[in-house]
Amino acid sequence: MKNWKKWLGIVLSGTMMISLAACGGGSDTASEKKKLVIYTGRDKNVVDTVVPKFKEKYPDIKVEVLTMGAQQILERVRGEKANPQADFWWGAPQTTLMTAADEGLLESYKPSFADKIPTQYKDAQNRWMGEMLLPEVIMYNSKVLKKEEAPQDWDQLLDAKYKDKILIRGVLPSGTMRMIYSSMIFRQGADNPEKGYDWLKKLDANTKEYTQDPTNLYLKLARQEGSLSVWNLQDIMIQKELKKMPFDFIYPKSGAPILVDGVGIVKGAKNADAAKKFYDFLFEENTVQDLSDKFYQIPARSDMKQPSWLKGTELKPLNIDWSVMAKKEKEWMQYWDTNIKNKGKK
């Protein structure tokens, strides 16, 4: 009897140890593998379309999405470098991603579709890939201005007749706006930015307000608190076609900065496997085509056909050295913020 009790005690003790182990570190590891944290600058409509489809394909992965401007994402990822909180970075201009890669914030990963992305649209070490091409254009309220009345090129934005008609999304938190403003400096001469600064001073004199975020920009433009802005083509089309906002665009005659908007895996991501799954899913042909048709994305993949909604629009690019932009953008934007913003009316 004593031997039987002793044997039963050993068995129960062993069972308890196995149960405790299962409830301890092992389950944490399993839960980490089934989680995915995404930092994104993408429009909510795009996120709300892609993420549910991804979760349908991978129901065991819990997805958390935090939305903010591309520059805000860079600063956050930079601040979290020692203990990364994000796994996947979804959406930023190539200059922002180039900076992140140079600072060791992005993981090298060569997905199966890598050869479909042209060399100029990706990092040589596969630390980021271009998802789409994003022309930056002139935006206007079509209830206030006829197409022929809106500025047809960048320099026309400086015309005195547009004074207090221009609304600009807050520049520093926005990767899009930083690139538009930096492009305006570059086109005047990157070696000596003074001409570019002078151009932005004249634009500031015509600017009524710098809005807090894109939502405020859309609301104020729709309420006719201003009639003009500069913004990316995709978001203008989303607001026009899906939200039925009274917006339209002018593709500048001299050309537009065409950003390569891309993605990457955060260096040291806790859920790298899930991030890779989302990476591959995002670039699947069906996903790319769906986003192109429904959300006006121009695919960076070379094997995808040009969207039908873009027919009749020539994607004429401004001649920009993006490596120079990546190096100079921070310096230029700090100068603009300190010496130009809101000083044109004084």
Rank of each mutant, 00 (worst) to 15 (best):
M68C: 07
P93Q: 13
I236G: 13
V137C: 07
E107H: 13
N339P: 04
L145C: 00
G9M: 11
E225V: 02
K6C: 11
L291W: 00
K316T: 06
K143I: 05
N232E: 07
I18R: 07
N216I: 05
S112K: 10
F278A: 08
M237D: 08
M245C: 03
I320D: 11
I18E: 09
K243C: 05
M1D: 12
M129D: 13
M333H: 08
Y296G: 06
G170A: 15
Q188G: 04
R178H: 08
P135E: 13
I168T: 12
K276F: 04
V37S: 14
D153A: 02
K81P: 13
K6L: 15
L105W: 12
T40F: 09
V324F: 10
D191L: 12
D213F: 08
S182H: 06
L158M: 05
N232V: 01
A30M: 12
W199K: 02
I185D: 06
A222M: 12
A92Y: 10
A150E: 00
L221D: 03
W89E: 11
K55W: 08
R169N: 15
W309F: 09
L221K: 04
M132L: 13
I298W: 01
T176V: 15
L310P: 01
E329C: 10
R78C: 09
T67E: 15
L233W: 08
N319M: 10
K208I: 04
T215F: 09
S27T: 13
M68E: 13
L282T: 08
K35P: 02
K62F: 10
N126I: 03
P252W: 05
K2A: 14
L219V: 14
